[in-house]
Design a protein around this nucleic acid. Structure first.
Lengths: 168, 168
DNA sequence: CATATATGTCAATAAGGCTGACATATATAT
DNA sequence: ATATATATGTCAGCCTTATTGACATATATG
């Protein structure tokens, strides 16, 4: 990988090939940045009206997707510290978007659930994002969805690939 | 769009169809979050060693891609305030990663360029991300790259779609 | 000459991360 | 039983990156 740039200083064919390949990949990098920026902008804007931010969105989203998940599992997905999560989670619990229930099997655990209010906003935000993606799929043709998902899976660290099922 | 959830309360076929469609789209949302998280983690880690963050990365990246771009153009892409950019930019100029040159045609403008040092780190970071994406393309089959880019373009707000060329 | 544009800068504030330290309750292993 | 490990919570302080508002300067342009 690093060797690409050692040999790319001359004008050999292989250097040219590798340079243009990198150029194509740069476009993907850029598109990914822009797409993620616009993908998160709408929900961010809506949440900011309620005094929440993107961090709250992520918590609402993942709890909605995994009802009854534990705090540890959430930390594992978000890859932030528990102190960071605690602040966000406390606000969401205080404002009645998320409920913490005691796990009867293991009394140390708190199981996370969306309240009706939390579920409502989750659906609103998810629909906005889903709508944006669906439009893109429609424009991009037949196998766009499966190819897109496959590539994203490939970008994700191996460890977390199994987290999202592929039964669709 | 909103009507999906109005009718989804009953068990009609169409409601079921729409629910499963949303479910599939939720997977894409989740994959996009995880992919972006892992996609930025490596460069973030490297930059943090030099006391920089993701904001610096973005500036280095876009200046590298658009040598001679103006401050306004950069603000337009990043969609942050000029005060936010100013701090990051000042650090990068002070540490010799970016050069500001006076535009001879319009003396109000400062044209942004990477220094050799800036170019070096840009290549390092871009290569890491490119490598990750390339591997994903390889795994995902023949047309993965063009389909992936098409979908991302569809996700990006219309206004910014032209920003990334498609001559690849 | 007046106004618009491009850039820079000061100050105050907020969100959302971080580290380190410590507390409590419950499970599990010896 | 006791010791250790696990799951969670919380306090305090700090950093980065963003925000808004106000104002300054240089240069272009009508």
């Amino acid at each position: 990988m690093v060797s690409i740039f050692v040999i790319a200083k001359d004008n050999s064919n292989i250097a040219f090939f590798l340079e243009t390949e990198l150029e194509g990949l740069r476009q993907s990098i850029e598109l990914l940045f822009l797409a993620y920026r616009d993908f998160t902008a709408e929900p961010d804007e809506i949440l900011s009206r309620s005094g929440f931010g993107r961090a709250h969105h992520r918590v609402i989203y993942f709890v909605g997707r995994n009802p009854g998940m534990t705090v540890s599992q959430l930390l594992d997905i978000l890859q932030i510290t528990k102190q960071s999560l605690a602040r966000v989670l406390r606000q969401l619990v205080d404002e009645g978007f998320i409920e913490k229930r005691l796990d009867e099997k293991d009394g140390r655990r708190r199981l996370l659930h969306l309240s009706a209010k939390g579920s409502e906003i989750e659906i609103l935000l998810t629909t906005l994002q889903a709508e944006r993606i669906r439009t893109a799929f429609d424009q991009a043709g037949k196998d766009a969805e499966s190819v897109f998902k496959d590539v994203l899976r490939g970008i994700i660290n191996e460890k977390d690939r199994g987290r999202v099922s592929d039964n669709c």
